[in-house]
Simulated assay, not measured.
Amino acid sequence: MKILVCCGSGLGSSFMIEMNIKKVLKELNFDAEVDHSDLSSAAGIKADVYVGTRDIASQMTSLGDVISLNNMIDMGELKDKLTEYLNKKGLL
């Protein structure tokens, strides 16, 4: 499974969310490839699910499944939404 985190510039915020996703996945004992990108490059990167903050999430829906975060530093929200997605896909 591949998770791609997107932000406007592909630098700070997407990298921070990528690190937090890796922490959550470790807690869940779930192995996945996690990477980050800027929004414009994301269209050329195949992933199973795309993660971004709510301000850009609507721009990613044409790419595939999207997890929209209200607060990019809220680890509880991130864990809840990742767990919900993985359960919905029958992966957890």
Results as ranks from 00 to 15, higher is better:
Asn87Gln: 12
Thr83Val: 07
Lys2Met: 03
Leu63Lys: 01
Ala43Gln: 12
Lys79Asp: 04
Lys81Leu: 14
Ser9His: 11
Asp74Glu: 10
Asp38Lys: 07
Gly90Ser: 13
Asn70Gln: 14
Lys79Arg: 15
Glu77Arg: 00
Ser9Gly: 08
Ile56Tyr: 08
Gly12Glu: 02
Leu4Ala: 03
Ala47Arg: 05
Val24Asn: 02
Lys79Trp: 06
Gly52Asp: 02
Asp74Trp: 11
Cys7Gly: 04
Asn20Val: 00
Gly10Cys: 04
Ser62Asp: 15
Met16Phe: 11
Gly44Leu: 05
Thr83Asp: 01
Lys89Phe: 04
Ile21Leu: 10
Val5Leu: 04
Thr83Phe: 05
Asn29Thr: 10
Glu84Ser: 09
Lys22Thr: 05
Lys23Met: 09
Leu82Tyr: 00
Leu28Trp: 07
Gly76Thr: 15
Asn29Trp: 06
Met72Tyr: 15
Leu28Asn: 07
Gly64Ala: 13
Val51Trp: 03
Gly10Met: 03
Ala32Trp: 02
Leu78Val: 06
Ser58Pro: 08
Met60Ile: 10
Gly44Pro: 03
Thr53Gly: 15
Ser13His: 10
Glu77Ser: 03
Leu91Thr: 04
Ser41Lys: 07
Ala32Met: 11
Ile3Asp: 03
Asp55Phe: 11
Leu11Glu: 10
Asp55Gln: 12
Ala43Glu: 15
Asp35Asn: 12
Ala32Pro: 03
Asn29Arg: 15
Ala43Gly: 15
Leu91Ser: 01
Gly64Ile: 14
Ser14Ile: 09
Ser62Trp: 10
Thr53Gln: 11
Lys2Thr: 08
Met1Ile: 13
Ile73Thr: 13
Ile73Leu: 13
Met75Tyr: 10
Ser68Glu: 10
Gly64Val: 14
Ser9Arg: 11
Phe30Val: 10
Gln59Gly: 00
Glu33Gly: 07
Leu25Val: 09
Leu91Trp: 10
Asp55Leu: 06
Leu86Cys: 07
Gln59Ala: 09
Ala57Met: 13
Val66Met: 13
Ala32Phe: 04
Ser68Ala: 14
Met1Gln: 08
Ser37Val: 09
Lys89Leu: 04
Met19Phe: 01
Glu33Cys: 02
Met16Gly: 07
His36Ile: 04
Ser9Cys: 09
Ser37Gly: 04
Thr61Met: 12
Leu69Gln: 03
Leu28Cys: 01
Phe15Val: 09
